[in-house]
Write a protein that binds this DNA or RNA. Structure first.
Lengths: 341, 341
DNA sequence: TAGATTTCTTTAAACGATTGAACCGGCAAG
DNA sequence: CTTGCCGGTTCAATCGTTTAAAGAAATCTA
């Protein structure tokens, strides 16, 4: 269907040229005030709808920004997205969201689609195993990329994430200071930079405190509630009976707490559990979850701003920017109970 | 920046016309097999990127579908979106997602943006108070709309949602059959069609069982965990001491259960609680939540299909389609305890 | 009063792909 | 030998907007 009302419709109805109408609608000082008002009024009367594809064909700015993360329904990303949304809304950019579910293919598809649509830029939390070439594909075609939450080796675009090693060390040290010596690490994988950083943070904290680092205490697994819930069994049936768990994130921690509760033990008394991220949910979990705030809102806000800056050509924020996490102590951790033996 | 590689680049490099290249890339039977292969090969060599805006300017099909709901981070919508995503992916449509947070303005902005981008269609869970004119704006400009989860008075486009009155009655009857007579309804508002339907379902079930409907037992509030958590106080301090709660949704129920647990009471023994929606989370909550499956995945799938059908001009699914909810009985509900009096 | 300047407005050429119509050389039918 | 047809390819107009550059009318300058 062809467009009913276009610039020329308005132009004809007023006996003007499309050029004038175009300029007037964009508040150009070139057109007389009176003319501008008449044009705008008529545009509304006629129900004119601006055709962005026609415009962007000419100008090569589409006003579209892509955002792709592992899973937008994951509350961790949800909080980042919320911040990005706020920031982009302010500068009237439309954003296209997508999950990649850690499929490099799905992610590349998204980048290609975005290029086809003439996307102005892309913010991404790269899928596990993202090749540098995929980021370059975007950059080389004039679509700047910003990374969040994870880095890609060989890529130097602006990257924003929490300082994972530091953050996990905060949690681990907190447990150590409560007297725990057998501390498991539950959930997640060691295949991402995040994963390696977190494990290193945990292991280093133990070593510094003179405790043994036992690989058997690492229970890897999905980063979900379900994953944490299922890990509870393994956790509780370990030979060495750990008394505390540092969890990959709040979801895993909440799942684990549920699993432990099902088994009749009391988190925050028999067992101490820490989360990571400080989701809204952490505070209302039972017991309220001790966790580490990971700066989601800052990550989102900074990432969006970095992109907008790039689009305006003004700034250069290339390279890695680490956000410092902060400890949030609640009721899921407690001093070590001396077991009557 | 102008496009580096376009149809004409390929055409020139092979001594052909852009017309042939255009046809070849779209697998038209009009071009010779040999030619087609050479063209495709060269396109890849040159790193050609299809320019959808140029194409859609000519064809008026953009391959973009908009989806706008109250809050994509809300797991209820998340499950619907997941289904929509799967269905749309299959037919290579890009989808643009947005929250309206129940702001009619934000929603209208989204519709306008989508029209500007030449969106092929829109799936929406309309904001509270959406005027019929906003839906018509889309339809009148050739962008078919599909409604999910809520209806809009005066609008007859395809609408998919759960049968709320029926579903809440299921939950209410379940509690009645367990012997409860003082049953509160917690969370949500009565300003939407959904809200009115749900309250009606609850009230009717009580009346049919010969029980009194007391407006004081209706605790309205936000449809979030936080909302449920906060409602716990009010619930526990009511004069008439209800022994069970029908919650607006699983989130409210989980929040309420947390709140009740904090107060030292045991859900599934002292108090019975039902949820609504059957989110993934319901099964792993503690105690596992008795709830009503609301057909999210069906709603999403049917809605996406209805839209795709409309785009192909093939079908007519106008009007309301109700999905029948189903009961999921777990551990958060139990027979009424006779209070020692 | 002629020329210069200012203030609007228009002309016309892009932007990159699609598509109905035209073209072309070769071959079969009449 | 003309006519028609066929597979393959090209021509040229078109989608709706933007924007240099040119034009026109009014105002200012000397």
């Amino acid at each position: 269907m062809v467009q009913k009302v276009k610039l020329s419709t308005i132009a004809e109805s007023l006996g003007l040229s499309t050029a004038t109408v175009s300029l007037a609608l964009r508040d150009s000082p070139l057109v007389a005030d009176l003319t501008r008002d008449r044009i705008k009024e008529r545009a509304i009367e006629l129900g004119y709808i601006y055709n962005r594809r026609a415009a962007s064909l000419r100008t090569s700015r589409s006003g579209i920004v892509g955002v792709v993360v592992h899973d937008i329904m994951n509350p961790f990303y949800a909080e980042i997205l919320r911040a990005i949304e706020t920031e982009l809304d302010r500068s009237r950019q439309t954003f296209i969201l997508s999950n990649h579910y850690d499929s490099v293919n799905k992610q590349r598809n998204f980048i290609e689609t975005l290029l086809q649509l003439g996307g102005d830029g892309v913010i991404m939390s790269p899928a596990i195993g993202t090749p540098a070439a995929d980021i370059r594909l975007a950059e080389d075609n004039g679509m700047p990329a910003i990374l969040i939450a994870r880095s890609v080796p060989g890529i130097d675009v602006p990257t924003f994430r929490g300082d994972d090693a530091f953050g996990i060390a905060l949690a681990t040290n907190h447990l150590i200071s409560l007297g725990h010596t057998l501390i498991a690490m539950v959930g997640g994988t060691d295949q991402t930079s995040t994963g390696r950083d977190r494990y290193a943070g945990y292991a280093n904290a133990l070593r510094k405190a003179g405790l043994r680092v036992d690989p058997a205490l690492r229970i890897a697994g999905p980063r979900t509630k379900q994953g944490g819930f299922e890990a509870a069994l393994e956790f509780l049936s370990m030979q060495q009976k750990p008394t505390a768990a540092v969890c990959w994130n709040d979801l895993v921690a909440i799942g684990l707490m549920n699993g432990i509760a099902r088994a009749g033990l009391v988190v925050g008394k028999d067992i101490s559990v820490t989360g990571y991220d400080d989701l809204e949910e952490a505070a209302i979990a039972t017991p309220a979850l001790t966790t580490v705030w990971n700066g989601q809102s800052d990550v989102g806000r900074y990432a969006a701003r970095a992109l907008l800056d790039k689009l305006n050509g003004s700034s250069e924020a290339d390279g890695l920017h680490l956000i410092k996490p902060e400890m949030r102590i609640r009721q899921s951790t407690a001093p070590l109970q001396r077991t009557p033996s």
